[in-house]
Write a protein that binds this DNA or RNA. Sequence first.
DNA 1: TTTAGGG
DNA 2: CCCTAAA
Length: 420
Amino acid sequence: MDGFSYEFEFGFRTNCGGLDSFTTQGEDDLKLEVLDGLLDDIDEVDDFHAANDLSTVCDDFLLDIEFTEKVAKFDCGPVEGSHLGNSSSESHSPGASGSNVAVGMSDSSITALESECKNDSLEKMVNCELHGTFKSKCEYQAPDMEKCPSSHDMDRFDELDSDDNVLLSSILSKCKKRVKSTVLGTKVKRLRKPTKRYIEESSDLKPGSLMRGQNVSTATLKDKHPKVTPCNGSSKGSQVASESWLRGGRLKKRSPILGFESDDDIFSSDSDDDRVRKRKSKIDDRRKNQRMWTLSEVMKLIDGISQFGVGKWTDIKRLLFSSSSHRTPIDLRDKWRNLLRASYAHQKNKGEVDPKHAMRSLPKPVLCRIRELATIHPYPRVPYSKKCNGDTDSSRHPIKAKSAPFSSHGRNLRTTIKEQ
DNA sequence: TTTAGGG
DNA sequence: CCCTAAA
């Protein structure tokens, strides 16, 4: 049973070194045809995923196939007794650590086997072993290669377990695919798909943990300094409570698994809401964590900046925003950038506020404060104060002159300096 | 790790 | 808000 699978697999593997000597090139086509015919009856078993890094074997493909055919013939022949059901043969060789891998012969074990076969030593070892068992038989039978498999052989083939057949089918279909690509000269390099083992490992996460990957830990990680700060007087009473789910799941890095997750819904343990939400806003989900800045937050930010200076975002975060687990230092910086932009826009409009944005505009004192701070702590690489723009200040900072202050045109900062 | 800058 | 490069 398994012995057949095992030996077949290893025969396939090791043929490259052992059996190519007695096959003439002229037989290749014939054999391929025969093999193809054989294989056509077999359902294509889905990929072996172990296709990764089989390229080293690929060069010996034709030979592999030859041997495959031989095995199909020989192993069912009279001598097959020593093959079929003789899985103990591997136990003869104590050094054959790899043999253990193949005995179970599940798909995953095949995967394991294949990956193990990348190991040179293992291959050699198996070579040795098989030269003892296989080669002699095969060489012995080689002269009869031309003849078709006898009906007896085919019967024996049919006698195989269904499990064995499945396995055999898998292996053969794999051979077939590779042979086709190789023989046709295309030698298509298959895209590196995730190995079955990888998928299995991924899906193993599913049952136990509802925590979707990394989402859980980051939330707690941020409040390293749970300094008790009155919840910034924000009108949003629910802010602190809700931010755990809103922001707690902020993904610092996209994990490679994310590809699966979005494509196949491997993590089907998601609630329906989650799934719907994920589908709906896959594109702009970067915005879904967005949080309106409250005035009090802005004030705190301004205070922090005036206290620590611009650029000390971590300090500001630690001391003033420790209670809000969202608002990373980067957020603070971004907000400050936006505030500067806004203040500049405001100033440029001579105090007139676009009625459309009137609601969002900052109170005048805050605006003044921002402008004030901007002069004291110019935002990085802002060479001159916004207030004195247009004068020759920029000439004093020739290096930094290229980075323009914030313009009223959204984020296009550079056009402004050209205009001036 | 933090910051700056771009998107 | 996110990502990445640079420090």
